[in-house]
Simulated scan of single mutants.
Amino acid sequence: MEQPVQPVQKFSVAVQPNPDGTYGYVIAANGRPLIEQPHVPGRAGTQGFRTAEAARRTAALVRSKLRRGIMPPSVTPAELDSLGI
């Protein structure tokens, strides 16, 4: 019996500024928003990323987890440390 073909997911990342001057990110799957992350995941509180580059690096990590089928694509404090965040 044939298995149904899973649609290919194309994940894109967009860094967005927050009203307080910090940054967050949005990851879209096939052009539709999948994850909206205005603050640093894996840390207490609701503080955004200090730089757009830090948001981009974290979003790239989450995107790589999504591509590998890891759900949920949680981010640990150790992973943030390894990214220099």
Rank of each mutant, 00 (worst) to 15 (best):
M1E: 10
M1L: 13
M1Q: 09
E2M: 11
Q3Y: 12
Q3D: 10
Q3R: 13
P4S: 06
V5C: 06
Q6E: 00
Q6W: 00
Q6P: 00
P7L: 10
P7S: 09
Q9S: 13
Q9E: 13
K10W: 13
K10E: 14
K10R: 15
F11W: 15
F11L: 15
S12D: 13
S12I: 05
V13Q: 12
V13D: 10
A14I: 04
Q16Y: 14
Q16F: 14
Q16I: 14
P17D: 08
P17C: 10
P17A: 13
N18V: 08
P19K: 03
D20I: 05
T22G: 00
T22N: 00
Y23H: 15
Y23T: 12
G24A: 01
V26D: 10
I27K: 12
A28C: 04
A29K: 09
N30P: 07
R32L: 15
P33T: 01
L34M: 11
I35Y: 05
I35P: 02
I35W: 05
I35C: 07
I35E: 06
E36M: 08
E36A: 13
Q37P: 03
Q37S: 03
Q37T: 03
P38K: 02
H39F: 14
V40F: 13
V40I: 15
P41A: 02
P41E: 04
P41Y: 04
G42W: 06
R43C: 12
R43W: 13
R43G: 10
A44N: 00
A44W: 00
G45I: 09
T46Q: 09
Q47F: 02
G48L: 03
F49M: 00
T51Y: 15
T51D: 14
T51V: 14
A52P: 03
E53V: 11
E53N: 08
A54P: 02
A55P: 12
A55W: 11
A55K: 09
R57Y: 01
R57L: 11
T58P: 14
T58I: 09
A59T: 07
A59E: 07
A60E: 15
A60M: 11
A60W: 02
L61G: 07
L61Q: 01
L61H: 05
V62S: 04
R63E: 06
L66E: 09
R67C: 13
R68T: 09
R68W: 01
R68N: 09
R68L: 10
G69F: 12
G69Q: 02
G69S: 02
G69N: 13
G69E: 10
I70A: 05
M71V: 06
P72E: 06
P72S: 02
P72M: 03
P72Q: 04
P73T: 04
P73G: 06
P73I: 05
P73K: 04
S74F: 12
S74M: 07
S74Y: 09
V75R: 02
V75N: 04
V75E: 00
V75K: 03
T76P: 01
T76N: 01
T76F: 00
P77M: 00
P77T: 04
P77N: 01
P77L: 05
A78Y: 09
E79Y: 11
E79I: 07
L80M: 09
L80R: 14
L80H: 12
D81E: 08
D81Y: 04
S82K: 07
S82E: 08
S82R: 10
L83E: 02
L83C: 03
G84S: 01
G84V: 01
